[in-house]
């Protein structure tokens, strides 16, 4: 996904609420996209949400996280954490 300024590091966390699966996409905030205004960062989250919905047809929640907080993997990156108890 080509959203300018968004770090390539992301993680998807899947949880289950009743019979519904919820997807949270965690994205690291780089200096290029960081703003001192709350509304700019909220707008970025909404834009990512819309792009994912347009591209994949999936509704998800976007969580902006601090840089380097998503675990780096030396090999295959662990992109999805499935916390559902099925």
């Amino acid at each position: 996904m080509g959203v300018e300024g968004v770090e390539p590091h992301y993680q998807i966390v899947v949880t289950r609420d009743g019979s519904l699966d919820n997807i949270e996409v965690q994205v690291e905030v780089s200096e290029q996209i960081f703003s001192d205004e709350v509304k700019s960062l909220e707008k970025l989250g909404k834009r990512l949400q819309t792009e994912i919905k347009d591209l994949l047809g999936i509704s998800c929640r976007i969580k902006l996280v601090e840089p380097k907080t998503i675990q780096r993997s030396e090999g295959k990156a662990k992109r999805v954490i499935d916390n559902r108890k099925i």
Binding site: E31, F34, D36, P67
Partner: peptide
């Protein structure tokens, strides 16, 4: 220290 910092 690992923070995202901007000057405005």
């Amino acid at each position: 220290a690992g923070f995202t910092v901007g000057i405005t």
